[in-house]
């Protein structure tokens, strides 16, 4: 293989890891609570702005910014859960779309109002430069995001499958009434799930901010990718989101290189639709 092709694939994998990173929170909420969060992309955007604020005010990079963003977004997640989602969940599914779409606009344009329309970035060398491994360029900031994506996936997976908190959360998502009879408080479990999901999303935003631009409307660009990643991976499946993210990243990268950049999304959506035909539950989802 030519070194360019290896570079294309490596680039695709790193990109895919980022997709997986900002999709893991969505799959948790969507799959576990059956809530479609149209504001997900804007949670990523908030994480980016938190990282930017941390850097401007304290002059420190994502090693401080990312945990802070995770904390801030976890708080936002809990507020959103108690303020909106809890009551919306009692209504029809359309009410969730209505409510989270309104929330998306509210968040996006509150940030617009506070920070203005200008594009911002973090300095490129905040995480480190670019490594050269046998002629393949590896950007430190993307590498960090990729590693964190793996850690977050692993962590969430272990949390859900190996801890009592995880089993309680799953129990609530299976049957809230039955869980309540078992002495589990569905409200607290779902609030915790929102905190974890939003926190992971904030973390993702802060890491993406190290190599992406920051703008109030950036959530629109990223949100739809997350939707495709989550449904390809299977709703609620954290490992599924990782595999799907990597797959989409590589397909995008390779098709952009070979077929043309305008066609990469056409390829992704077509493959996605074909895939749904044969396996409607996604890669790792349950029917």
């Amino acid at each position: 293989m030519s070194s360019i092709l290896v570079q294309v694939i490596v680039g695709g994998l790193l990109l895919g890891a980022v997709y997986a990173l900002f999709s893991s929170g969505l799959t948790l909420i969507w799959g576990m609570m059956n809530v479609v969060n149209f504001a997900h992309g804007d949670f990523v955007m908030l994480g980016m702005y938190v990282a930017f604020m941390v850097w401007t005010l304290l002059g420190v990079g994502p090693f401080v910014g990312a945990p802070v963003a995770a904390l801030v977004l976890a708080t936002v997640g809990v507020i959103v859960y108690f303020g909106l989602i809890r009551s919306v969940m009692k209504g029809p599914m359309l009410a969730q779309i209505l409510g989270t779409f309104g929330l998306a606009l509210l968040l996006r344009y509150s940030v617009f109002w506070a920070f203005g329309a200008n594009f911002l970035t973090l300095p490129g060398d905040l995480v480190g430069g670019t490594y050269d491994v046998l002629g393949i360029k590896l950007q430190a900031s993307r590498l960090l995001a990729g590693v964190v994506a793996l850690l977050v996936t692993l962590g969430l997976h272990l949390l859900l499958t190996r801890t009592s908190l995880g089993s309680k959360m799953l129990a609530v998502s299976e049957d809230a009434t039955a869980a309540q009879l078992m002495g589990i408080r569905p409200d607290s479990m779902q609030a915790i799930a929102w905190a974890i999901a939003a926190g992971a999303t904030g973390l993702a935003g802060a890491l993406i901010a190290t190599f992406f631009y920051i703008a109030p409307t950036v959530g629109e660009t990223l949100g739809i990718v997350a939707f495709v990643t989550v449904s390809l991976g299977g709703f609620g499946s954290v490992p599924g989101a990782l595999v799907a993210g990597l797959l989409i990243g590589v397909i995008e990268s390779v098709s952009a290189y070979w077929i043309g950049a305008v066609y990469k999304d056409i390829v992704v959506y077509s493959l996605f639709l074909c895939f749904l035909w044969f396996r409607p539950q996604g890669l790792m989802g349950k029917m």
Partner: peptide, 11 residues
């Protein structure tokens, strides 16, 4: 040519 507002331009 490429699609505007893209997430990635490596390719």
């Amino acid at each position: 040519p490429y699609a505007a507002n893209t997430t990635d331009v490596q390719s």
